[in-house]
Design a protein around this nucleic acid. Structure first.
Lengths: 136, 136
DNA sequence: CTGCTAGAGTTGATATGTCAACAGCAGGAA
DNA sequence: TTCCTGCTGTTGACATATCAACTCTAGCAG
């Protein structure tokens, strides 16, 4: 019934909602694993790819730039979450420990996302959001 | 036609879309004003409130915690974008320069948001996203 | 008055994100 | 060969985000 949101209001609403959901999901993840958001997305991506990827492929899959990824991988390698094999190109691989961690974590992550995000959507909203996001 | 996205995929899609749109809008804003994202949201909020707010009200309006806001305001005050008047409580006010800046910037910001975000949505998607976001 | 408590802000340490500059290397063109 | 050029990755500087610990002040109970 209230006036429909302006473009700007819609944008700020998206930012706000994203921040809120992100904070809640990450709080769950951090509590059960000690992993941060960048840790998480990198481990999930590597796991999905079978445990190893060329660094540039990882960057492309995530949509990250080289610098950001390089810094993050340096920090993660220092915590023994992954290894870097340098050749003409660099290959990143999960460690045993990280593989076990991410395997155990996935179910919790899915339930957290469902609890804090998708469960609040109607089927129509879910469909609309899915199609809109895939287009952006 | 492809399988509908899982909860997790929908979540990662939201994160990715948010990052992409954010980067494009901010690139436009930064080019025309030199302002960063936190600069922008704070200036917009202050401007909307008439140019001054108690620091705690600003934090509540943005959904930011005290620490984050305090650090950010310190950096912005050092660039003469705002002033802090301390009494029993702290009042934050736009400077002349910042008010002029944000006034001139609003039209560009709206067009950037429209160009990079809302113009890609169908009316139905827009409606669904608006209602879903307001609920989260 | 003393002491307690809650709210508001600040500070310092550390993690993360962004930018510009650089290094190394492969594949050609000259 | 030498010299480009593009691709990949690193580094250092700085901006931003997060966390824990701290100060300060206003109330308020005893």
């Amino acid at each position: 019934m209230s006036t429909p949101p302006s473009d700007l209001e819609l944008w700020f609403a998206l930012k706000r909602a994203h921040e809120v959901v992100r904070a809640r999901v990450l709080a769950d993840v951090a509590e059960s694993s000690g992993l941060s958001e960048p840790d998480l997305v990198i481990l999930v991506q590597l796991d999905k790819a079978g445990g190893r990827l060329r660094q540039s492929e990882l960057a492309a899959a995530l949509g990250w730039d080289r610098t950001r990824l390089s810094h993050q991988l340096t920090r993660m390698a220092s915590r023994d979450l992954l290894t870097r094999d340098r050749g003409a190109t660099v290959t990143v691989a999960l460690t045993e420990a990280a593989h076990a961690l991410i395997t155990a974590l996935q179910p919790r992550l899915e339930s957290a996302v469902q609890r804090h995000f998708t469960s609040h959507l109607t089927p129509a909203e879910r469909q609309a959001i899915g199609s809109a996001l895939s287009r952006l």
